[in-house]
Simulated assay, not measured.
Amino acid sequence: MLERRSARRLPGGVVAQKPAWRCASPLPATTALAFSTWAHALTRTSAGRLGGPTYAVPAVTVLFSWMWIADVPGRLALLDGAVCLAGVPASRLPGR
């Protein structure tokens, strides 16, 4: 049977909560950094020129996770990634 815990009540019927900083995620800060970097890069060149290197982000992420935390992707995942990366230049071929 599950144990039921009662919440600590403060004056006025307010329920005490954990401080938010204990469970805060660094995600908003990293997202803000990524968007700021992208905005800065857009001031230097066009979005069309920046689009190409964007496709390399998943491949670089897989390589870094493989090197740093030994997260080895499966064969099918590697094949899927190779097909996706090969499709990018194929879609840019002239004559379409």
Rank of each mutant, 00 (worst) to 15 (best):
V72D: 03
E3R: 14
T54E: 03
G13Q: 04
R4M: 08
V83F: 08
G51R: 13
L2K: 12
L10W: 04
M67R: 15
R75I: 01
R22W: 15
R75L: 05
A34P: 00
Y55D: 01
A41W: 10
R92K: 11
R5S: 06
A86P: 02
A24H: 07
T43D: 11
R9A: 07
G95T: 02
A70I: 01
H40F: 05
C84D: 14
A82P: 00
R22S: 00
A24R: 15
M1L: 11
G13V: 02
P89S: 10
P26Q: 06
S65M: 07
A56D: 10
L27G: 00
D71A: 11
R8F: 04
L27F: 07
W68D: 13
S65Y: 04
F64H: 07
M1Y: 10
L79Y: 05
R92W: 09
A47T: 03
M67K: 13
R96A: 13
P19E: 08
S25L: 03
R75D: 05
G95P: 01
V62S: 02
P26H: 09
T45G: 00
A39Y: 02
A90P: 00
A29G: 09
A39I: 01
A24V: 02
T31M: 14
P58R: 07
A70M: 08
V62C: 02
P53N: 08
L2Y: 08
A47C: 02
F64C: 04
S46G: 12
V62R: 04
W38A: 15
A41I: 01
A16D: 10
S6R: 11
R96V: 03
A86T: 11
V15C: 04
C23F: 15
P73V: 04
V88G: 00
V83Q: 09
A47D: 07
V60N: 06
A7P: 04
L76R: 14
R49W: 09
T43R: 15
M67A: 12
T31D: 10
R22T: 05
A47N: 03
P89G: 09
L78V: 11
P19C: 02
S25F: 05
R49K: 11
A32D: 12
P19I: 02
R22H: 06
P28H: 12
A86C: 13
M67C: 07
E3N: 12
V14E: 14
W66R: 12
V60M: 09
G52K: 04
R44M: 12
D80T: 02
A56R: 13
M67T: 07
P11K: 07
A7L: 05
T30V: 10
A34S: 03
G13L: 01
A70N: 14
P53H: 06
R75A: 08
I69E: 15
L2M: 05
S36R: 15
P11Y: 05
L76F: 02
C23A: 15
T31Y: 10
G95S: 06
L78G: 01
C23I: 08
A34Y: 06
S65N: 14
E3C: 03
D71Q: 12
